[in-house]
């Protein structure tokens, strides 16, 4: 039998700030941030493709930087500002990236979309008018099997253009 079931699970009181909201949770220390977001906070917009840090699907923003939530423990995220796809829109108003992704068909099955949106958001904060190569570089850690990446690149360009013009 697995040894982890033989010993008591260590739990810690953990405070997380997600999409501007504070949460206080009593969590097993080994539970990943991905699991906590999805299972404890019911923020199921964050998806998973491998749970091994290989596909980028579970990307969230930690203090604005894209991080793989499947490789983070909640304790590592304490005191940091977490953003998931649910935190992208301002109320009912979608983020320009969300609008562009929906408009250009950059989300086919949509499963990789939340992670890519967040990685793209971080990119546009860092570099509001990225080059095509800059977009490819920034998103290279996120796999997509539907789109061939073309419409995603175009959507990031469109959002960037609209945000610059706004």
């Amino acid at each position: 039998m697995r040894s982890e079931l033989d010993r008591p699970v260590q739990r810690e009181l953990t405070r997380l700030r997600v999409n501007g909201e504070e949460f206080e949770l009593y969590l097993p220390v080994h539970k990943t941030l991905l699991e906590v977001l999805r299972e404890d906070l019911k923020l199921t917009g964050t998806k998973h493709g491998c749970e091994l840090g290989e596909c980028g699907t579970c990307t969230v923003l930690v203090d604005g930087e894209p991080q793989l939530s499947c490789l983070l423990l909640p304790l590592q995220a304490e005191g940091r500002e977490l953003t998931t796809v649910e935190g992208l829109a301002e109320g009912a108003a979608l983020h320009p990236l969300q609008v562009a992704f929906a408009e250009l068909g950059a989300a086919q099955c949509g499963y990789c979309t939340p992670g890519i949106l967040l990685a793209a958001k971080a990119l546009l904060v860092r570099d509001p008018r990225p080059s095509r190569d800059g977009i490819k570089e920034a998103l290279a850690g996120n796999l997509c099997r539907c789109t061939g990446y073309v419409k995603i690149i175009e959507a990031v360009e469109l959002a960037s253009q609209r945000m610059a013009e706004a």
């Binding site: 917009g45 796809v85 979608l94 992704f101 929906a102 408009e103 068909g105 979309t113």
Partner: peptide, 13 residues
């Protein structure tokens, strides 16, 4: 655009 665009870009699907 696709009819299911909004739920997929907001994480609601």
């Amino acid at each position: 655009p696709k009819v299911d665009g909004a739920p997929k870009v907001t994480g609601q699907a």
